[in-house]
Design a protein around this nucleic acid. Structure first.
Lengths: 217, 217
DNA sequence: ATATTTTAGTGAACAGTGTTTACTTTTTGA
DNA sequence: TCAAAAAGTAAACACTGTTCACTAAAATAT
């Protein structure tokens, strides 16, 4: 195992890069991609706008790095739930709910992560590199969990885990996007709320999982 | 019934407004909001950029009008299916599928219609004006259909149609967004396609409806 | 028909954006 | 110590949405 020695220069460079990313992250979380401008970012870290381009070759590349970090966060959280020993029914529901809740916490990140589908063409299932990407890994956690459900008889036997995972992901994605884009979702004016957002997420997760189940009465 | 008489001036004005919108529609369908610029639009219809502002008070307002027309299209199509006399099982599935297919046909429209959730704050369920908006009407078609399903015993008796409709819509929305943002969704490299896009839409619609059903085995 | 007022349309500018280029300063490695 | 490489910058380019002062034309009132 070769250890990559990092020169002081290299470390200094990485530090500044990280400072840029952290400043970008801060602005992005509050105001989204619209509010994030190179000039503003430069001012924030006390550099000239052109300086940013010594560290990132474009704004898109910078934002893509924020997205990848965000998917890392999703993956970590979903994985943490998936590795739990709680009963399958709960566990699968919690996975779905957790995914959506993270989108709730960082709506701008979530919306951006899918909008435009990363300017530098992210790999999609079937392409090389998908399995390596954080998004790809998250997908595999999901399809793995569906496989488990089929094996233990909780889900219908004729289910193709990959196909079902795509469908389930779409359903999670939908709620995540709704929440990301509509501040008051699931609506109901403040004073006539029938259900809290979190309860609705669980409701939706239930609904989605139920579509896979073998029986219920 | 009072007939609103339109002066020649008014008609001429509406005609030009329509010309602007139609040019905008053309550009928008091909390249989305990014490609639509006031200057380009002005050149397209042979006016100065500033002239546009005599007909629309902002670009957002112009785009919002495109969105509303788009929702009209969705509503028309979904309504057409909903009024069919085909068996309930098929009919409900087709409604979901149709919704998604329209998003497939006009991905930019669909993505824009939800992204930013209309700059001029569209009414959300619970607010006045929602029931009048095209989006609100589409929602009511959906929840009405769910009510029917509960009544005839196809869906679980404990289902709250409004709540379920929100969940179902989120699931449709997710697939629609996936398709709108990812050109190759549901992925699979061209030569290893396991399932066509349309088949996958039906598969997803099935899955979604199944989550509501009373029994299956 | 004439005078007045409203509307249609324009060119130029403002304030922003991402990005590139030529240039200077600093840091690094031999 | 000195040449080479990297860091950082000011100024410009080509865009963007939008506003403002202005002219030309049509609509309205007298």
């Amino acid at each position: 195992m070769t250890v990559t020695v990092s020169s002081p220069a290299e470390r200094r460079r990485n530090k500044i890069r990280a400072r840029i990313l952290s400043a970008a992250e801060r602005v992005f979380a509050r105001e989204g991609a619209e509010g994030l401008s190179i000039r503003r970012l430069a001012e924030n870290i006390d550099y000239s706008p052109a300086a940013i381009y010594k560290y990132f070759k474009s704004k898109d590349e910078l934002v893509d790095e924020l997205k990848e970090t965000f998917f890392e966060l999703i993956l970590e959280n979903v994985n943490r739930i998936a590795d739990t020993s709680t009963p399958f029914a709960e566990r699968s529901r919690d996975c779905v709910a957790t995914y959506v809740q993270i989108a709730t916490d960082k709506p701008y990140h979530y919306a951006a992560a899918f909008a435009g589908e990363s300017a530098t063409q992210a790999p999609v299932d079937g392409e090389p590199g998908f399995a390596q990407s954080k998004k790809g890994q998250a997908f595999m956690v999901l399809s793995g969990m569906i496989s488990e459900g089929v094996e233990i008889g909780a889900f219908r036997a004729d289910i193709d885990p990959t196909l079902a995972a795509k469908s389930i992901w779409a359903s999670m994605h939908g709620l995540a996007m709704m929440i990301a884009h509509i501040p008051t979702y699931p609506a109901f004016k403040a004073d006539q709320a029938i259900m809290t957002r979190n309860d609705f997420i669980l409701y939706h997760a239930d609904q989605v999982i139920r579509g896979l189940e073998a029986h219920h009465g």
